[in-house]
Design a protein around this nucleic acid. Sequence first.
DNA 1: GTTTTGACACCCG
DNA 2: TCGGGTGCCAAAA
Length: 98
Amino acid sequence: MTPFQKSVYRATMRVPKGSVTTYGRIAKSIGSLGAARAVGNVLNKNIDTVHIPCHRVVCANGKVGGYVHGQREKIRKLRHEGVVIKKGRVDESHIIDV
DNA sequence: GTTTTGACACCCG
DNA sequence: TCGGGTGCCAAAA
């Protein structure tokens, strides 16, 4: 596992339940500004959704983005944690910096 | 060493 | 608000 991937996973685990962050912000927080896309790639390769809450990572514009188990499932999980989602978009108030 | 691939971000019309 | 095009980055082939 590359150090970049470890950083991404660590950052992802920092996101508190009931809140979400964006790919770009994760990238910035681990010192790889502009690597939003690369971050997505890492999460995609990760199948270990049990140990890593990758469903709390969304797009900067509030769009949900993808998920290994399907977008539907991702949204369902988020709503389950109390995150408000309207028409496939996460409410801004839940998007935070870590 | 070079090319391809994405779970993005940003700008423009 | 929405779609399309462009730029960016790290990994894997």
